[in-house]
Nucleic acid binder design. Structure first.
Lengths: 108, 108
DNA sequence: ATTTATTATCGTAATATTGCAATATTATAA
DNA sequence: TTATAATATTGCAATATTACGATAATAAAT
């Protein structure tokens, strides 16, 4: 029926999947990469740089905010979107924990 | 229009997003975790353990195979699904590279 | 050969995601 | 106050994903 049956999984499994899912779009990867190498990180720059409509970029930014990867500060009539480095490190750590605790293989 | 515009991104961005995307479902997380802690890793066990229909589990296993995380060996009329540890490590490394090269922040 | 057990595939319904135009909101500039 | 500029939100169309029943395919057992 197309709906993910979240209720049959643990909250940790759902949260982990949520992190992976939000990172699972090339536009969001591109946004993160662009922000990380710029001195300024204005939404309008992203529209030109990435080539998606302003509404679409805004939506992707919103999703990245839901997992705390980005924080936006108002600078006059512009927005400065920044990586939240603490959250970034924390997510990297969480994903590594998943990889390290899951790699034991039954057939090797 | 709802279709991801893959053509405007680099192949590296698309590949990275693809990895994240496939890991971005709780059923696939659960499958990986279950396989990693069992002595045997039979598809039918997963159906009972996870509580999704057999067709659905089979589909998720197929997706995990597309990024090489799982390999399946035929054992009589059963299938033994195993983690490909090399690929597992390789993907972990790739994701860490992404995290390490992207964390520089413009506003901090 | 027939049955049984296991997994894969097909078809389809329900829901989610992606993308954009139009519009709303917010803040500066004139 | 009225533009102007930047970003957010809404509404909608197109496509993708998720899930499952039905069925096919495969291999062992009888």
């Amino acid at each position: 029926m197309g709906i993910t049956k979240s209720q049959i999984f643990t909250s940790r499994q759902n949260e982990l999947a949520q992190l992976f899912k939000i990172l699972g779009h090339p536009a969001r990867i591109a946004i993160l990469q662009y922000i990380s190498k710029q001195d300024s990180c204005i939404c309008n720059d992203l529209v030109e740089e990435i080539g998606l409509a302003q509404a679409t970029i805004s939506q992707h930014l919103k999703e990245l905010k839901t997992i705390g990867l980005l924080k936006g500060e108002i600078e006059g009539k512009k927005m400065c979107y920044c990586l939240d480095v603490d959250q970034w490190n924390s997510i990297q750590k969480e994903l590594n924990t998943f990889f390290n605790t899951t790699k034991i293989n039954c057939c090797s």
